[in-house]
Simulated assay, not measured.
Amino acid sequence: MNLHPYVVTLGTAGGPRFWGAGNQTGHRCGISTAVVVGDAVYLVDCGRASASQFAAAGLNPNQLRGIFLTHLHSDHTVDLPGFLLFGWMMAGRQTEPVAVIGPGDRGMLPPVNPNALGTVSPQFPDAPTAGTAKMVEHLFRAYSTDITDRMLDSLRPSPDTVFKAKDIKVPAETGFHPNHNPTPEGVEPFVIFRDDLVTVTATLVAHPPIAPAFAFRFDTAAGSVTISGDTAPCANLVRLAEGTDLLLHEAIDMEWAAAAYADVSAATREATLEHHRKSHTTPEQAGQIAAAAGARRLALHHLVPGNAAPEVWAQAGRHYDGPVLIPQDLDHLSFAATTSTVSPRI
């Protein structure tokens, strides 16, 4: 088996928007990354169109061993139903269920933004902050008509035999608290998944008010890749990514953000900009993180906006001397320790 590891950037745009094909760059789908090791595939996040991109990349659902969610914002999970329901059709294979691993229930409401002009209440008071396992259950319930039809008429097995959802348990020694200490300093990366090909470790990153929010590192016999998830500059991520062969880090153009919300109320605009400032990373900051971690290569993804000019992202090279990659959707990026190859889209 060829274990040369690489990622496929199924989608490289971030944010809950539709990024059209503008005059500056090609169309980008929602954030999603396939980690390929030998014949196995591990999926990180399920942004818009990622299920279709998975097929376009020539990947087979029978290769899928795990789905990992960095956090539960919609731009990272909106295509999860596609993988769960269409992937269910691979039922009958003789392997373990596909692991669906992500944050657990927050456990309490986040603070209301101080810009609020009145009372703000959760949409679903009975389950306002469902975690990964509960979200998967809710999704299967939402599609109960489809599932019942296929189980009773087509004799499909229960989807629970194909997918097994699991909440990530944050180690108690981190001191994590969703409101008071969402990103404790000095977190020791902890293992969340291991099989014969990969060991996946996680750390807590800074993406308030979402908590917990994670970054993931995949270590293989041939190399490593670290995927930041959504985060502001964070020492925990630097520690997780130390010496990694490839760091995929989010990036946002803050100048774009300042001009992008002219059509909303002043309170919403200020709350949104405050969120971007405290929860995301500029290209220049991403370069600083890569340098601090000693990453061998840096690739920017989860690009906001998804149609910015390439020179916006080039700022990552101001503080980082290694290769800076700005992949398009469906690019192949090797993370083998002995190569710096970037393959074109297939």
Results as ranks from 00 to 15, higher is better:
residue 3 L to P: 06
residue 19 W to V: 12
residue 20 G to A: 09
residue 22 G to E: 06
residue 24 Q to A: 14
residue 25 T to G: 06
residue 26 G to F: 09
residue 27 H to K: 10
residue 33 T to Y: 02
residue 38 G to D: 09
residue 44 V to R: 02
residue 45 D to I: 04
residue 48 R to N: 08
residue 48 R to Y: 15
residue 51 A to H: 07
residue 54 F to W: 06
residue 55 A to W: 06
residue 60 N to W: 08
residue 60 N to E: 15
residue 63 Q to V: 02
residue 64 L to P: 00
residue 65 R to N: 03
residue 75 D to S: 12
residue 86 F to M: 15
residue 89 M to G: 13
residue 92 G to F: 01
residue 92 G to D: 03
residue 95 T to C: 12
residue 97 P to E: 01
residue 97 P to R: 05
residue 99 A to F: 01
residue 101 I to A: 01
residue 103 P to E: 07
residue 104 G to F: 09
residue 104 G to I: 05
residue 107 G to S: 10
residue 108 M to K: 15
residue 111 P to A: 13
residue 112 V to A: 00
residue 114 P to Y: 11
residue 123 Q to S: 09
residue 129 T to R: 04
residue 130 A to V: 12
residue 142 A to P: 05
residue 146 D to N: 15
residue 153 D to G: 11
residue 156 R to C: 13
residue 158 S to A: 12
residue 159 P to E: 07
residue 160 D to T: 09
residue 164 K to C: 10
residue 164 K to P: 02
residue 164 K to S: 10
residue 166 K to C: 09
residue 170 V to R: 00
residue 172 A to Y: 10
residue 172 A to P: 06
residue 178 P to V: 04
residue 180 H to T: 07
residue 182 P to M: 06
residue 184 P to H: 14
residue 187 V to M: 09
residue 187 V to L: 11
residue 198 V to P: 00
residue 200 V to Q: 03
residue 201 T to L: 11
residue 203 T to E: 11
residue 206 A to K: 13
residue 212 P to R: 00
residue 213 A to S: 14
residue 215 A to G: 04
residue 215 A to R: 04
residue 219 D to V: 02
residue 223 G to A: 05
residue 228 S to D: 12
residue 230 D to Y: 00
residue 233 P to E: 03
residue 236 N to I: 04
residue 236 N to L: 05
residue 239 R to A: 14
residue 240 L to M: 03
residue 240 L to K: 00
residue 241 A to I: 00
residue 241 A to R: 00
residue 243 G to E: 07
residue 246 L to G: 01
residue 260 A to R: 15
residue 261 Y to K: 14
residue 262 A to D: 14
residue 262 A to M: 12
residue 263 D to I: 12
residue 264 V to D: 05
residue 265 S to V: 08
residue 268 T to A: 13
residue 268 T to E: 14
residue 271 A to D: 06
residue 275 H to K: 15
residue 276 H to Q: 11
residue 281 T to I: 09
residue 283 P to E: 02
residue 286 A to S: 13
residue 293 A to V: 00
residue 297 R to F: 01
residue 297 R to H: 05
residue 300 L to P: 01
residue 307 N to S: 14
residue 307 N to A: 14
residue 308 A to C: 06
residue 311 E to M: 15
residue 312 V to E: 04
residue 312 V to P: 00
residue 314 A to S: 11
residue 316 A to L: 01
residue 319 H to S: 15
residue 320 Y to P: 03
residue 321 D to M: 06
residue 327 P to S: 06
residue 330 L to F: 07
residue 339 T to P: 10
residue 340 S to P: 08
residue 341 T to E: 15
